[in-house]
Design a protein around this nucleic acid. Structure first.
Lengths: 248, 248
DNA sequence: CGAAAACCTGTAAGTTCTGACAGCTTAAAT
DNA sequence: ATTTAAGCTGTCAGAACTTACAGGTTTTCG
């Protein structure tokens, strides 16, 4: 639980070059902070309809297969929390499901049977629409592990940020192309106004150019983004954070 | 630096109901962890072209005015890091700016003159496209404060997550309407496929309905989102995270 | 039952976008 | 000095979207 170990793990994550290395580091995190299993999942919206999913799982295989096979991700209250919040969720603070909500109730019972009695889930949202979630679990009773989990929270949360960063780096290099499609200023401007619902003619007035020019830039942007039309380009540009260049 | 203080701050943030209360809590964070000033800024994309900006500043007023007035946010390397990463940035790890990059060089010099010699910046991205940044600073030399900042990092990072959550809650209740515009399943489906670049006719094939019906749903969605056309609806739906209902 | 909401479908005129054609200027880089 | 990239502009036909009209069924809830 010493800060030194946390620092060491962070440096290991910054140096990691493969998913396997990261997996091994996660195991170490479990060992150091008194957890048994971990699971990391990230969703990267390369496409909205079919986002790229990425798993690093230290969960029992049987449970993982059951979880994915039965679509438990739709049910899991932990997932819902992580989609909407940025704060860690120690499982003992989970509200008991509504009476009528049988599926959730059953799901949580099953999880306990698989040795996931207590734990904490750490959400992580990236600047490019990625959503990720690291769960650390133990088979101890919630009462016993509560204080230990609370004490570990600041460390594992910080670690989860570096984990996320490491995964992004590794995935970008070895798996998919998180192509950053460099757009020109004009292209971004035209996309921005198009996303604000302006027609080409209106955007032309705003930018003091001809309508034809606006269309031209939007077409170029669409080509660079490798999309089929204007709507697609807008959606892609928004998820990739290509618009809103200025913070202020 | 004890965990108990961290826990106490988090509980205070969870209970905070106004921006003033949050400001006060941030001051306490500074005091506890040995910083002098803090600044929190969040950008919420209610509109892409004119996002809602939200400040809680404990910086010297003169510096804050200068910073905003001169558009330093465009230059500030700390802001650039926070837009692209999820990990904390201790200022001493900032790479020195390129030789030719005079504006950045000058900017950093000015910051030092205003008593912002060392510090750390904590990025935070929310699940609905919000981007936020908490900076904690001190007038000590980087060498002196380095180890203290490193030790505080896990705590202040965790705190920054709860801070962000608290700000979201307060803003939603007292300032702007982060209206969640409830769309029906069909409307979301149609928006999703439109965002994927499908024409109404194509979406109709996918959903096994008539083209007219798809147009109808998209129009209804646009009305509910209070936008002027399809492109606008797509952009809004994407930033608000209304699409991609399933994680898996 | 009646009302509301989700869901579904059609026509027609007008506007906007798309794709393919062709060509210009200016500033930076080799 | 030549190339390259960004930026800019035009026309035209056909495809797609918008708006406004007018209807329908099914499910849910009070």
């Amino acid at each position: 639980m010493t800060p030194a170990i946390c620092q060491e793990i962070i440096e290991a994550l910054e140096a990691a070059g493969t998913v396997e290395e990261i997996h091994e580091i996660c195991s170490r995190v479990c060992a150091y902070y008194g957890f048994e299993h971990f699971a990391y999942v990230a969703r990267i919206p390369v496409s909205l309809a079919k986002p790229y999913m990425c798993y690093v799982s230290g969960f029992p295989e049987e449970w993982r297969d059951r979880y994915l096979g039965l679509g438990y991700m739709q049910i899991d209250p932990v997932v819902h929390h992580c989609l909407k919040h940025v704060t860690p969720l120690p499982w003992d603070t989970l509200m008991p499901p509504e009476k009528g909500d049988k599926p959730v109730w059953q799901f949580m019972g099953e999880a306990r049977e698989f040795g996931l009695k207590s734990g904490v889930s750490l959400p992580m949202h990236g600047g490019f629409g990625e959503t990720a979630l690291l769960s650390l679990t133990s088979n101890e009773s919630p009462e016993k592990s509560q204080s230990r989990i609370r004490a570990a929270l600041p460390y594992v949360y910080l670690i989860s940020a570096y984990l996320h960063e490491a995964m992004r780096r590794v995935i970008a290099s070895e798996q998919i192309d998180l192509n950053k499609a460099e757009l020109t200023e004009r292209e971004k401007e035209c996309l921005l106004w198009a996303a604000e619902g302006k027609t080409s003619w209106e955007t032309a007035q705003i930018l003091h150019v001809s309508e034809r020019t606006v269309i031209f830039h939007l077409q170029n942007a669409a080509k660079k983004l490798n999309v089929v039309n204007r709507q697609h380009a807008i959606a892609r540009a928004v998820v990739m954070g290509l618009i809103t260049p200025q913070f202020g």
